[in-house]
């Protein structure tokens, strides 16, 4: 188990608050914060139902919030100096996005057994470049999990037992 600092815990609590807010909106409860120089510069939580878009994960919401705060100037947003704290391990898509942005590091809560892009399903032993699902992307980043994992799982469980009646559904027969 990695040693987490008091600052790590503070940031992950903020991510958990985002996830709880998502649960209250009937979204899959995953939340995150982007941290620059030890201060939270952007927050995000899952909005796939609201935006009817399966790609609107917490990570994308936070990335867009940070970009918007810098008039869409990615260089000014300084992603390469940001650390992401997210309640659930980024999926393969988000891992690819974080890698494209050159994110500095990722701290996550629980693992993502279905879509994890940081090693849960993509690791193939020894291939460091494969370890965050971003092969072929700009670069890889270090990531560590397990911070407040039980709280993250508990939120997911609360969502899971209730089901997702608001999930975006196509308005047509398939």
């Amino acid at each position: 188990m990695a040693a987490f600092t008091a600052d790590d815990e503070r940031h992950m609590r903020a991510a958990l608050a985002e996830a709880t807010a998502a649960l209250d909106r009937w979204e899959v409860p995953v939340g995150c914060v982007l941290v620059l120089d030890n201060e939270i510069v952007a927050r995000g939580s899952n909005r796939t139902n609201e935006r009817r878009n399966g790609t609107r994960h917490a990570e994308f919401e936070a990335i867009d919030a940070l970009l918007a705060a810098h008039a869409n100037d990615a260089n000014a947003a300084r992603f390469e100096d940001c650390v992401l704290y997210v309640t659930c391990e980024p999926c393969i898509m988000c891992a690819g996005a974080l890698s494209l942005l050159g994110c500095r590091a990722v701290v996550y809560g629980c693992g993502n057994d279905k879509f994890g892009g940081n090693g849960s399903i993509l690791s193939d032993g020894g291939d460091a470049a494969a370890s965050n699902g971003a092969r072929g992307a700009r670069r890889t980043y270090p990531s560590v999990g397990g911070l407040f994992a039980e709280d993250a799982v508990e939120l997911l469980r609360r969502f899971y037992v209730r089901g997702n009646p608001k999930a975006p559904k196509p308005h047509r027969t398939l």
């Binding site: 796939t48 399966g54 994960h57 993502n112 057994d113 279905k114 971003a134 969502f159 999930a167 196509p170």
Partner: peptide, 30 residues
Amino acid sequence: ASLAEMTAEIGRGYLCTGYDVYCAREPCVM
């Protein structure tokens, strides 16, 4: 419920279900 079952919820997004996607270039991993 296993963690896999719960995290499967993260992958929900049915709006483009059944569609075909034509790309000039091969998509990246994201």
